[in-house]
Simulated assay, not measured.
Amino acid sequence: MYLVIFDCDGTLVDSQETILHGLEVGFAAVNLPMPDRRTALSIVGLSLEQAFARLAGPDNAHLAGAMSDAYRACKISRRAAGLDHDPLYPGTREALDRLAAKDDVLVGVATGKARRGVDHMVEVHGLHGRFVTVQTADTSPSKPHPDMIFRALSETGAEKTRTVMIGDTSYDMEMARAAGVYAIGVTWGYHDAAQLAAAGAHAVIGHFDELDGALSRLPGFDSLFETNLFGETV
């Protein structure tokens, strides 16, 4: 059995604008100036408190809790109003469909989002039943701590040698390496190819169309994408 774990923000969904809005609310709540866009988005992937503490700096790190509370309240309010419907990245649904069609593949999520954020994503995009394990910031330390992956392995019974983490940040790659599983970086999110490679990515892809090929080149994963006599992937 293979386990393929996806990050959410920056990997499955494009949440840049809604994250920036939430960060602005958090900074405004404690009367601190908002960082520039690039700096603000560099922390995507970390748990909320750790992200705000890093952005606020050492002198204001004690305000991270209040900033996080404001961010969460904003998110809950906007979702209740039918807002914050972050779009899937191109190819996301098709990639999930291809993996779901394989009897020997389990698909999971490991994200710095709260569980309610993942549930919202699943509901908005009709991804019910796609993820057999969902690991979030509610129950695990922030990435790059490997706890999320360890929990996913425990829940599914998958082996490390048949598990891969797919994400867009160095935190995802470092988490995978710390857990002893494979890591595939994607460049359409928040960290570039050089950062992903430096953090230990076994492969880096620029579009979901490249995922099957990247997976098939991982040791032990080649049987996932065997072809039949007609050259079709099975």
Results as ranks from 00 to 15, higher is better:
residue 110 A to Y: 06
residue 110 A to V: 06
residue 111 T to S: 05
residue 111 T to P: 00
residue 112 G to W: 13
residue 112 G to C: 08
residue 113 K to P: 02
residue 114 A to R: 09
residue 114 A to G: 09
residue 114 A to D: 07
residue 115 R to D: 12
residue 115 R to Q: 12
residue 116 R to F: 15
residue 117 G to T: 00
residue 118 V to R: 02
residue 118 V to C: 04
residue 120 H to C: 09
residue 121 M to H: 08
residue 121 M to T: 05
residue 121 M to K: 03
residue 122 V to M: 01
residue 122 V to P: 00
residue 123 E to T: 14
residue 123 E to F: 05
residue 123 E to K: 04
residue 124 V to I: 14
residue 125 H to T: 10
residue 125 H to D: 06
residue 125 H to Y: 12
residue 125 H to N: 06
residue 126 G to S: 13
residue 126 G to Q: 13
residue 126 G to N: 12
residue 127 L to I: 08
residue 127 L to Q: 06
residue 127 L to W: 07
residue 128 H to A: 14
residue 128 H to L: 11
residue 128 H to M: 09
residue 129 G to T: 12
residue 130 R to C: 11
residue 130 R to I: 15
residue 130 R to E: 07
residue 130 R to L: 10
residue 131 F to S: 09
residue 131 F to T: 13
residue 132 V to K: 13
residue 132 V to S: 15
residue 133 T to K: 04
residue 133 T to L: 09
residue 134 V to C: 12
residue 135 Q to F: 15
residue 136 T to A: 10
residue 136 T to N: 06
residue 137 A to T: 03
residue 138 D to T: 08
residue 138 D to S: 06
residue 138 D to N: 08
residue 138 D to Q: 05
residue 139 T to D: 14
residue 141 P to G: 01
residue 141 P to Y: 00
residue 141 P to N: 00
residue 142 S to K: 12
residue 142 S to D: 08
residue 143 K to I: 10
residue 144 P to S: 03
residue 145 H to Q: 08
residue 145 H to C: 10
residue 146 P to L: 01
residue 147 D to N: 09
residue 148 M to E: 03
residue 148 M to P: 02
residue 148 M to V: 04
residue 148 M to C: 02
residue 150 F to T: 00
residue 150 F to S: 00
residue 151 R to T: 15
residue 151 R to N: 15
residue 151 R to K: 14
residue 152 A to M: 10
residue 154 S to F: 14
residue 155 E to N: 09
residue 155 E to Y: 09
residue 155 E to P: 04
residue 156 T to F: 13
residue 158 A to G: 05
residue 158 A to L: 08
residue 159 E to G: 12
residue 160 K to Y: 11
residue 160 K to V: 15
residue 160 K to S: 14
residue 160 K to P: 08
residue 161 T to P: 01
residue 161 T to G: 08
residue 162 R to G: 13
residue 162 R to E: 13
residue 162 R to F: 15
residue 162 R to T: 14
residue 163 T to L: 07
residue 163 T to I: 12
residue 165 M to V: 10
residue 165 M to C: 01
residue 165 M to L: 11
residue 166 I to D: 06
residue 166 I to A: 06
residue 166 I to L: 12
residue 167 G to A: 11
residue 167 G to E: 10
residue 168 D to T: 08
residue 168 D to V: 12
residue 169 T to F: 11
residue 169 T to K: 03
residue 172 D to N: 05
residue 172 D to P: 07
residue 172 D to K: 02
residue 172 D to A: 07
residue 173 M to F: 10
residue 174 E to R: 04
residue 174 E to F: 01
residue 175 M to D: 03
residue 175 M to S: 02
residue 176 A to K: 00
residue 176 A to P: 01
residue 176 A to H: 03
residue 177 R to D: 10
residue 177 R to C: 11
residue 177 R to G: 10
residue 179 A to H: 01
residue 179 A to V: 03
residue 179 A to M: 01
residue 180 G to N: 08
residue 180 G to M: 13
residue 180 G to V: 15
